[in-house]
Every structure is written in structure tokens, then in C-alpha cells.
Amino acid sequence: MPRFSSYDSTELAYHVQGSGPPLVCLPGGPARASSYLGDLGGLSRERTLLMLDLRGSGESAVPEDPTSYRCERLLDDVEAFRLHLGLDRMELLAHSAAGNLAALYAARHPDRLDRLVLVTPGLRAVGLETLGFTEAVAARSTQWWYAEAKAAMDAWQEAAARGAGPAEVEPLRTGAAPFAYGRWDERARAHAEAEEWERPDAAAAGFYDAFAPQTSAVRAALAGLDAPVLVVAGALDPAPTPEAAHALAALLPRAEVVVQDATSHFPWLDDPSRFVKTVLTFLGEERPRC
């Protein structure tokens, strides 16, 4: 398992998959081990995926300073990772909560990015609301799992709003998991169940603890970002909805949005071939197959 020492000597691990040009990958969760990304639907067949385990998760070490789990503090880990890899500029992919981390990195280090792929990204760093959440949840009402998952979703939102701890929140989050998948089948259930051991409480709670980004400054910096940006949204995803993904793209001068039909928060699981084609086309690496 390759490792490197970050800015404060915390040992961070990363996973290498595939072959081809490098693509640095940041996992969401927040703080979920990068193993949940798999090979991103087969993207590793055309790219070398460099998947970072954020501090305190996966194979990475627990830091001495727990405040270093916070999203904006993790920027220095991403920069240390780039330097370790010897990349002057990089193509970066970030999923879910890590979309906040990637947005902050792009604002601080715009000259270090060639291209940026944001897959169903978080929106807190830019101060956007979760547009259309209620409608997206209601749109799944014909599913057999809806009543139980909706009750868990409502209880999760209420518990999170009052700052409840992981012991209360995590079972509710698990109960609401069907909304994150286009199909609630055996594969989706196994993927969701793995989160229990892939997402450590301390790192997950610390990611947003006292996170208060200066969103106006972040937006101003992103307005000058020259790197092309792809935002991949799932048509069924309640957070972010396609509407929210378009609002995010509107803040970026060279952004495009692709909405994958019949997919939710993990589009590479719901429709891997479409996901891989979308990302490779954006990165300019799609190749004809015989």
C-alpha cells in the first residue's frame, strides 16, 4: 500500500488502479474509505486511478490534531498528495462531500488543475441550497421501499439539524440509503452496508465540524477558474438534484453538466458504461473499440 507523509507528518495511504494517464480521486462520505469507489465503473481501464484515503479513514493514519479533519484543513493533504505524485498539474475527480474539498482546492490552487470532475458533489463550500430535495424524494414514492426509507430520511434530517451524534444519525442514514441508488438491489444493499466500516465516526464528524467557508470569496475565486469542469448528476439524486448541479455549474466559467438518467448518488454503480463514457469524453480520452 503506497503511503506518503503529509504536511504535519500524518501518514496517508492511497490506492492505485488501472493504467493510462493519472486521475486523482477524492472520496466522499464524508471521510469514507476510497474502496467504495471501486474502479469507478471500469474507468480504470483507461486511466490510472490514484485514490486517496483521507486522514483517519481507510488505510490512512489518525492525526494527532482532530481539527485537521475539517474540510478546509484537508486542502493541505490534497496539495501534499499532488507533490508526492510529482504532478505539476492534475486532473481531479471528487465525489459527494469531497466536492466541497475540490471546490476549495480549485479556489486556492487554480493553476494546479487541468480538469475537474465533480460527481454528485456537495454544495456547502459555495453556499448553495439543496434545490428540489423534497420533490426528488417524493418522486420515488412508487418504490416498494419508500415508506420505510422516507421515515428514516425525515428522522435523519431532523436529527442532523439539531446536531445529534453518530450513534443516533448513522442508523437513520442507513435506513434512508435506498434514495442514493437507482435500483435498490442486492448490489446496492451490499454497497450501502459496507459504509458502516468504511466511514469512521471521528473523521466523518470532523469533516464539517465548525466548517464555515467564506462562500462569497470561494465563488469569486471559482469565477476565474480556467480549468474545464464536468458536473455529473444523477436524475434521481435528492442531494444534489440536477437543478442544484446546474446552479453549481453556473458559478464556473467553463463548466458543463451531464445528468445520468435512472441513476442517483453513485452513477458509476447504476450505469457504469454511461458514466465511463461521460468522464472519458470530458477528459478527451475516449477511444474507439473494435
Rank of each mutant, 00 (worst) to 15 (best):
F211L: 15
V279K: 08
L251H: 03
F81V: 01
R162Q: 15
A205W: 00
D209W: 09
G206C: 13
E256Q: 14
F4A: 13
H265F: 02
P253G: 09
A190R: 15
L225S: 10
M51Q: 05
T215S: 03
R173E: 14
V276Y: 03
F133C: 10
A250N: 12
L172H: 10
D201R: 13
D226L: 09
A247F: 09
P200E: 04
S35E: 01
A249W: 00
V218K: 08
L104M: 10
A161W: 01
S5D: 14
G38A: 04
D154K: 05
L251V: 11
L128E: 06
A176S: 14
M1V: 00
T120E: 10
S216E: 11
E11H: 12
E64P: 05
V218C: 02
A180Y: 05
L123E: 11
A159I: 11
R189N: 03
D261L: 02
D261Y: 02
L131N: 05
A160M: 11
A164D: 15
P21M: 03
R173P: 06
A247I: 08
S216F: 00
W145H: 04
G234Y: 13
A221W: 03
T263E: 04
P30M: 03
R219E: 14
T241R: 07
D114S: 07
G42C: 11
F282E: 04
G206T: 13
E256K: 08
R82L: 09
M90W: 13
P240R: 02
P272F: 01
A167G: 04
F282G: 01
V218R: 07
A194E: 08
L251A: 03
D65V: 00
P178T: 14
R187G: 12
P63H: 12
L104S: 13
A239S: 04
A33R: 10
T281K: 08
T174P: 07
